[in-house]
Computed example of a mutant assay.
Amino acid sequence: MIYTVTFNPSLDYVVTVPKLEVGAINRTKGEKVFPGGKGINVSWVLQNLGIPTRILGFKAGFTGEEIQRLVEVQGIACDLLSVEEGFSRINVKVRSEEETAINGQGPVIGKADLERLLKQLETLQTGDMLVLSGSGPSGCAPTLYGRIARLMQQRKIPCVVDATEKLLENALEAGPFLVKPNKEELEDLLGRKLPTEADLVEGARELRKKGARNVLISLGGDGALLVDAFDAVHRHAAPRGHMVNTVGAGDSMVAGFLAGYLKNRDYQEALHWGVCAGSATAFSMHLATRETIEELIKGN
């Protein structure tokens, strides 16, 4: 079972506006509501690929209940913990000539709530995997992901960390199975520009020296680069297609990578699945389906 943690899930209200005009009334030509949050996205695509998964995290208020309902309608196991103060956020995604997003704040997650989540994590067993995705709760300690990753390390449960800055940096010493920064996030973490592929490989190896086993760098329309647990370098170009959506593409890459890796424990195959899953989401109005991913896998 692959468990994912989303500390601050959302209802994503996605609207299409032919031409967005600031300061004017804009009328939509299409609108959808999806459950959002990076961990939820990972579980959604894993479910589409037939990989058992369960969503953990927090919910609050009427929006939190709707997030859980929409996830369960998809057939995904979901154990979001209820918190009393605030309500789960609503994110507005406007698709026009350019994508615009307004993200809500989310509920207050207290120390006692975090302890309840840690208790949940104690139920994970040998053979399970944990994915920590996105930002922590508002005001959380930058050591939070590191604390959780160390708990998983002690129990020999592989941990995936897709986060930024200190949340990622503090988790490296716990030896996560996989980290997935994009190019800009890796540059921010290392404090320097990485203009060439050789620079990216060097940066990935620095993260490996700090503890990460596999470093997957997403490169948007240029595909992805992987430095694996044996220090081998793998490169994969992105499939050709018409990009209509960037939301969840990186999360889909994580899901595809894990699904591909679990097939044969082959890193090149895992990278192939990851890039195709990320691209399939980028070419879709929402997250990739099994059919759209497999179509790209067969054709690339």
Rank of each mutant, 00 (worst) to 15 (best):
G191W: 09
L144N: 05
L190S: 13
K183P: 00
A149S: 14
E165C: 06
E187W: 08
I148K: 06
V161N: 04
R147Q: 14
E173V: 09
L168E: 15
G191F: 10
L144D: 05
G191V: 15
V160A: 02
G139I: 05
M152C: 15
E187A: 13
A163E: 02
P181Y: 03
M152I: 11
K183C: 01
T143L: 05
Q153L: 01
L172Q: 13
F177L: 08
R147F: 12
K166D: 15
T164M: 12
K193S: 14
K183Y: 02
L167C: 04
N170L: 04
Q154N: 11
P176T: 11
K166P: 10
L151E: 15
L190N: 10
E169T: 06
G139Y: 04
M152R: 12
Q154W: 06
E185D: 09
L189D: 09
R150M: 12
Q154I: 04
L144K: 08
K166L: 14
A149H: 03
G139D: 11
P181T: 01
R155T: 12
S138K: 15
R155M: 01
Y145D: 01
P158D: 08
P158M: 10
E185L: 12
R155Y: 01
D188S: 15
A163F: 02
C159G: 06
I148P: 13
A171I: 07
E165P: 00
P181V: 02
E185K: 10
V160W: 00
K193P: 00
N182C: 06
A171S: 15
E165L: 14
Q154T: 07
T143I: 02
L186G: 09
K156F: 08
E187F: 02
L186T: 08
P158W: 05
E185C: 10
R147H: 11
N182L: 07
G139W: 04
G191H: 13
I148M: 10
L190M: 11
I157P: 03
A174W: 00
E169I: 08
G175L: 10
C159I: 12
A163D: 05
V161D: 03
P181L: 03
L168G: 14
C140H: 10
L189Y: 01
V179P: 05
F177S: 03
A141N: 11
V160E: 01
A171Y: 07
R155H: 05
P142G: 10
G175N: 14
F177A: 12
R192K: 14
A163K: 06
L172C: 01
K156W: 03
R147T: 15
I148H: 07
Y145E: 11
E184Q: 10
P181W: 13
I148C: 05
C140P: 00
L189W: 11
K180N: 13
V160N: 00
L178F: 01
K193D: 14
L194D: 07
N182D: 09
G175H: 11
Y145A: 04
G139H: 10
L144M: 13
G146N: 07
D188V: 13
L172E: 07
N170K: 13
I148G: 08
Y145W: 05
T164S: 15
V161R: 08
L178Y: 09
E165F: 04
A163G: 05
R155S: 04
Q154R: 14
E187V: 08
T164C: 10
